[in-house]
C-alpha cells in the first residue's frame, strides 16, 4: 500500500536570521501507512509539536517535503488548504479553544469552514458527537457548562467532524484522571476503526503508546533517533532512559526478572506480561 503521509528530509528552523534562530527539526524522514497507529515520543522540546504542525501545513518546512497521498502539500495552494481538513490536528489542552455558544456549533466550525452543505454538517456533527459519547442534550449545552473531560471530548469531536484521513493528537490525555484517560483513548480507537483512519499520537505515557501503537517514532534533540514497533523500540531500554524517557513499568519489571534469572522474553504491555508468565508455567495454574 502507498503511504498516506511521507516526510522527506524535513528540517525546520524558527526565526531564521535573528539571534533567536533555533533548529527545531533536523533532517527527519519517515512514512505512515493508511490505517496505522503511530505513537510519537520524546522529551519536552524535542520537536514533537513542531513536527505535528507540519503534517497539516500549519508550518512550512525550512527544508524538505511532506507528501500527503503522494502529493507535496506545498506544491499548490488548494492542496495546502485541503491538507488542513485531510489531516486533523488536535492540540494539547484542546478544550481551551472552544468558543461557540453551544457544543453543536463548536463542533460544526470545522465542517462549516470546509464549505459543506447544512445536511452534511449536521450528519457529521452528530456522528462526531457519537464517537466521543456526547448526548443530544449536551450538544445543545454551552461548552463551558461541561465537565473537564467532556470539554476535552467536545474539542476532539470538533476535529473528528472534519472526517480527517489522518488524526493527529498532541497529548490528548494530559491532566485527566485514569477514567477520563481511558475514555479518550477508546474514543480515538472507535474513530479509527469506523473510518479506517490513520492515527498519530504524541504521548508521555509509555504504558499507553506501548498498548495502542503499531509503530513508534522517537524524537530526541530535534532528530528522529529511533523508529519501529513498540517491541523494537522498547528493546533499547537503556538508550531511552538515557534520553530522559521512560519505558513501560512492566518492561522494567521483566528486565529485572531476566537479571534474576527468569527466562522471560521482553514485554511492554500488561496483557503480554500475564501471557508470558502463564506460558512459563505451561498453563499449570496454581490454586
Amino acid at each position: 500500500m502507498a503511504p498516506i503521509l511521507e516526510v522527506r528530509g524535513l528540517t525546520h528552523i524558527y526565526s531564521v536570521g535573528t539571534p533567536f534562530e533555533h533548529t527545531a527539526l533536523k533532517d527527519i524522514s519517515f512514512s505512515v501507512e493508511p490505517g496505522e497507529f503511530v505513537g510519537v515520543i520524546g522529551h519536552t522540546g524535542s520537536g514533537k509539536s513542531t513536527l505535528m504542525q507540519h503534517m497539516n501545513g500549519l508550518l512550512k518546512p525550512t527544508e524538505g517535503t511532506i507528501l500527503l497521498g503522494g502529493k507535496d502539500i506545498w506544491s499548490d495552494k488548494a492542496l495546502t488548504r485541503q491538507s488542513r481538513f485531510r489531516v486533523g490536528l488536535v492540540f494539547q489542552y484542546p478544550e481551551y479553544q472552544l468558543f461557540e455558544e453551544t457544543v453543536y456549533k463548536d463542533i460544526a466550525f470545522g465542517p462549516k469552514n470546509m464549505g459543506l452543505k447544512p445536511e452534511e454538517i449536521d450528519r457529521r456533527v452528530r456522528e462526531a458527537a457519537g464517537f466521543v459519547g456526547l448526548s443530544d442534550a449536551q450538544l445543545q449545552a454551552s461548552p463551558f457548562d461541561l465537565s473537564g473531560g467532556q470539554k476535552r471530548r467536545a474539542a476532539i469531536a470538533g476535529v473528528i467532524a472534519m472526517e480527517p484521513e489522518v488524526l493527529i493528537l498532541d497529548e490528548p490525555t494530559a491532566g485527566l484522571d485514569p477514567e477520563g484517560r481511558a475514555e479518550i483513548l477508546e474514543n480515538i480507537e472507535s474513530y479509527r476503526k469506523a473510518k479506517n483512519a490513520t492515527i498519530m499520537m504524541v504521548s508521555h505515557s509509555m504504558n499507553d503508546v506501548a498498548r495502542l501503537a503499531d509503530r513508534l517514532l522517537v524524537l530526541c534533540d530535534s532528530r528522529l533517533v529511533m523508529e519501529g514497533t513498540p517491541k523494537e523500540v522498547f528493546s533499547h531500554a537503556q538508550e531511552l532512559l538515557d534520553m530522559g524517557l521512560d519505558i513501560p513499568d512492566v518492561t522494567r519489571v521483566f528486565l529485572r526478572l531476566r537479571q534474576l534469572g527468569l527466562p522471560v522474553a521482553p514485554v511492554y504491555t500488561l496483557d503480554q506480561a500475564v501471557e508470558a508468565l502463564l506460558a512459563l508455567k505451561g498453563g499449570d495454574h496454581r490454586a
Partner: peptide, 13 residues
Amino acid sequence: DKIMCAQKARGAD
C-alpha cells in the same frame, strides 16, 4: 499563537 494555530487547524482563515 496557540489558539490561532488550533483554529487554523480547523480551517479558520
